[in-house]
Nucleic acid binder design. Structure first.
Length: 567
RNA sequence: UGUCCUGUGGUGUAAUUGGCAACACGUCUGACUCUGGAUCAGAAGAGUCCAGGUUCGAGCCCUGGCAGGACAACCA
C-alpha cells in the first residue's frame, strides 16, 4: 500500500486527485481552510449507480475535510422536472448514508437573483436580446473548427435590451421569439463562449415556482452562480462539463467581489459493463416495459440496487474502490458484485432454501418424526448465534445436487454415494424414482443415525455437504433470479444497433415454488439472507405474509459451475 | 482540419522533491473447511501509447507524433 492510501473501516481509501488539489489549496490557505461541496442533480429521473459515485465523492470529500455538502436540485428546465423525482432523490441520498442537514437548495431559489444578475449584465453591455430563431442562432455559432458570426441584434442599446428583457419576463412574447444571450466572443475556439444563450422563454409551469416565471435560466447561467451564492468551494462535476469551465469562470468573474470563487473540477463518470447508464435510456426501458419500473432489481438505479439487495455500505465501498480520476474507463460488474458479497458475507443471516426442489425420501427414517437440528446463523460472526431447523423423513434438495451418471469431479449425491445433509445426517442414495418420461421425481436414501448433527463417530468423511429443507416443515416462497439485463458488454456502444437489441431475454427467472426453512416466516422487505451454497437473497416488497418473495442479489462464487463449463 | 481532456497488467487504481512499477478485482495453484462459499498461502500477468531528448537514473521533466474522448439543445 502506498503512502497515498489509508485503510479505514476495512476499505482502502485512496487520496484521489481532487483531494490532492484540496490538500495543496489548504496548504496555501485558500478559502480560509473551508471545504464546501454540493450534489446537484436535475430532478428529471431516478438516481443511478453513477450518481452514487458522485454522491460519495461530494459528501465523502466534505467529511474528509470537516466541511459541508449541500443538496441542490438543478431545476432550471420545468418541462423535464417533477417533484416525484425530487422525493426519490432525497430518499436515495439518505439511504446511501449521507445527510445535507438544513442545506437543501433549488436552483429555482435563485430565479430572482439570477434575473437581477442578467439585468446587470445587460446594463454593463454584456448581454443582449436576440430575436432570431433557434436554427439561425445555431447556424451563426459556426462549428468546432469554424468561428461563428455575430448576430445582427448583438449591438442593441442597453435601453432596448432592458425593455425587451422586461417584456420577455412579462410574457409578451411566445416561446422561441427571442432569447437573452451573453455577449462574449463569437470567434472563440470554445463553442460555449460564442454568445451563449442564458435565458429562454418557456411557458411551462415549474414544479416549484408554478407560473411565476415564463423565462428560465440555462444551466450555464445558473450553476456557477448557485455555487457562488452558496459559498461552494469545490464544484465537482463530470468530464463533459470540462469545456463549460471557461464560461463557468466568466460568470463568476462578473459576479465576484472578493477573493472567494468556487472552483469547478471534473472527474470521469462511472461506466459499468453490461448495462446502460443514461437517464434517457433508463427511462426508455421503463416506458417500454422492458423492466418493471425504475426500481426493477435489474436496473442500475439506486432504488433498483436497493431492491436487488445491495446495501449502502457495499455501494460506498464500491465507490471507494473504483477511485476518482479523469480517465474514461469501464468498470467490470464483478467489482460491484465483489463489494456486495464482501459486505453480506460478514453480516447476512444464513438459511437453507431449495429453489429447484426434488424430493428425497429417507426410507429408514421414522415417519412423522420431526427433529430439530441446530444450525449456525453466520460462521463469520459467532455472536449471531444458532437456530433450530426441522428435519423430517421427506425433504427437498436442489435438483442440481443429484446426478444419476455423475462426471468425475461431481462430489454431490448420486446412486451409491454418501453425502452430508448440512447440520443433519449422512445419507446414501439407494434408489431413483422416475416418471414414465424418465424425469426424476423422487430420490430414495438411507441415513446413518449415528451421524446426527453431521458427523460420523467413526470419522469417515464425505466429499460433499448439501443444503436441504423439510418437505413438510417449511415456508413456500417465490424466488426471482436476476441475470444481467444486457448480453453485450457495451450495449450502447454500437453505432448501428439499438441498445435494446442486446436485452437479455433471460434476465429474470421467476421460481414460484421454492422451499425455505421456517426461520424466514416473519421476514420484512429488504432483509438480507444467504441461502447456503446458493447466494445472497433479499426480501422483495411484493412479499405477503402467506408468500414471501425473495430476490437473488448475487450468487456465491461457484467453482463447480466453472468446472462444468471448462469440461 | 480548431479548442480542451486523457493514455500504466484482462479491469480499475497507485507510485512523495525523478530512485527496483505497487494494491484491489479477475484468473490459476495449493492448504483448510459441515457452504465447491469464506479464510490462508502462493503463482502467472504490465516495463507505463510511440519516437527522440535531458539525466548516473524517467511512468513522472522537455520536444514531436499517434490513439481515444468531449464540444456545433432555446437539455443538464
Amino acid at each position: 500500500m502506498s503512502e497515498n492510501t489509508i485503510e479505514k473501516e476495512g476499505v482502502v481509501k485512496t487520496n484521489n486527485f481532487i483531494h490532492q488539489i484540496i490538500d495543496e489549496e489548504l496548504k496555501a490557505g485558500k478559502n480560509g481552510g473551508r471545504v464546501h461541496t454540493r450534489f446537484p442533480p436535475e430532478p428529471n429521473g431516478y438516481l443511478h449507480i453513477g450518481h452514487a459515485k458522485s454522491i460519495c465523492l461530494n459528501f465523502g470529500t466534505a467529511q474528509k475535510y470537516n466541511g459541508l455538502t449541500n443538496l441542490r436540485f438543478d431545476d432550471t428546465n420545468p418541462s423535464k422536472e417533477d417533484t416525484e423525482y425530487v422525493e426519490s432523490i432525497m430518499e436515495d441520498v439518505h439511504w446511501l448514508g449521507f445527510d445535507w442537514g438544513d442545506r437543501l437548495y433549488y436552483a429555482s431559489d435563485y430565479f430572482d437573483q439570477l434575473f437581477d444578475f442578467a439585468v446587470r449584465l445587460i446594463q454593463e453591455g454584456k448581454a443582449y436580446v436576440d430575436d432570431q430563431d433557434a436554427e439561425t442562432i445555431s447556424a451563426q455559432k459556426g462549428t468546432p473548427t469554424r468561428p461563428g458570426t455575430e448576430s445582427p441584434y448583438r449591438n442593441r442599446s442597453v435601453e432596448e435590451n432592458l425593455d425587451l428583457f422586461m417584456r420577455m419576463k412579462a410574457g409578451e412574447f411566445n416561446e422561441g421569439d427571442c432569447v437573452l444571450r451573453a455577449k462574449i466572443d463569437m470567434t472563440s475556439p470554445n463553442m460555449h463562449m460564442r454568445d451563449p444563450i442564458i435565458y429562454r422563454i418557456m411557458k411551462t409551469p415549474h414544479h416549484r415556482t408554478g407560473d411565476k416565471w415564463c423565462i428560465y435560466p440555462m444551466y450555464d447561467f445558473a450553476h456557477g452562480q448557485s455555487d457562488y451564492w452558496e459559498g461552494i468551494t469545490h464544484s465537482i462535476c463530470t468530464l463533459e462539463f470540462e469545456v463549460h469551465r471557461p464560461l463557468y469562470d466568466w460568470f463568476i468573474d462578473q459576479l465576484k467581489d472578493s477573493d472567494y470563487r468556487p472552483r469547478q473540477i471534473e472527474f470521469a463518470r462511472l461506466n459499468l459493463n453490461y448495462t446502460v447508464m443514461s437517464k434517457r435510456k433508463l427511462l426508455e426501458l421503463v416506458k417500454n416495459n422492458h423492466v418493471n419500473g425504475w426500481d426493477d432489481p435489474r436496473m442500475p438505479t439506486i432504488c433498483g440496487l436497493r431492491r436487488r439487495g445491495y446495501t449502502p455500505e457495499s455501494i460506498r465501498a464500491f465507490a471507494e474502490r473504483i477511485g476518482v480520476t479523469k480517465t474514461d474507463g469501464v468498470i467490470d460488474v464483478s467489482l460491484l458484485e465483489y463489494s456486495i458479497r464482501e459486505d453480506l458475507n460478514k453480516r447476512a443471516q444464513r438459511v437453507m432454501g431449495v429453489i429447484d426442489p426434488v424430493k428425497v425420501v429417507i426410507t429408514n427414517y421414522p415417519e412423522g418424526q420431526v427433529e430439530q437440528m441446530e444450525a449456525i446463523n453466520n460462521p463469520e460472526d459467532p455472536a449471531m448465534g444458532t437456530r433450530m431447523v426441522p428435519f423430517t423423513r421427506e425433504i427437498y434438495i436442489e435438483r442440481e445436487d443429484f446426478m444419476e451418471n455423475p462426471p468425475k469431479k461431481f462430489f454431490r449425491l448420486s446412486p451409491g454415494t454418501e453425502v452430508r445433509l448440512r447440520y443433519a445426517y449422512f445419507v446414501t442414495c439407494t434408489d431413483v424414482i422416475k416418471d414414465p418420461e424418465g424425469h426424476i421425481v423422487e430420490i430414495h436414501c438411507t441415513y446413518d443415525p449415528a451421524s446426527r448433527g453431521g458427523n460420523s463417530p467413526d470419522g469417515r468423511k464425505v466429499k460433499s455437504t448439501l443444503h436441504w429443507v423439510s418437505a413438510t416443515e417449511n415456508v413456500k416462497a417465490e424466488v426471482r433470479l436476476y441475470d444481467r439485463l444486457f448480453n453485450d458488454e457495451e450495449p450502447d456502444g454500437h453505432k448501428d444497433i439499438d441498445f435494446k437489441e442486446f436485452l437479455n431475454p433471460d434476465s429474470l427467472k421467476i421460481l414460484p415454488e421454492c422451499y425455505i426453512e421456517p426461520f424466514v416466516k416473519n421476514v420484512k422487505p429488504l432483509d438480507h439472507f444467504q441461502f447456503e451454497r446458493l447466494g445472497y437473497f433479499t426480501v422483495d416488497p411484493d412479499s405477503t405474509p402467506e408468500k414471501p418473495v425473495f430476490n437473488r442479489t448475487v450468487q456465491l462464487k461457484d467453482n463447480w459451475q466453472k468446472i462444468k463449463q471448462n469440461g
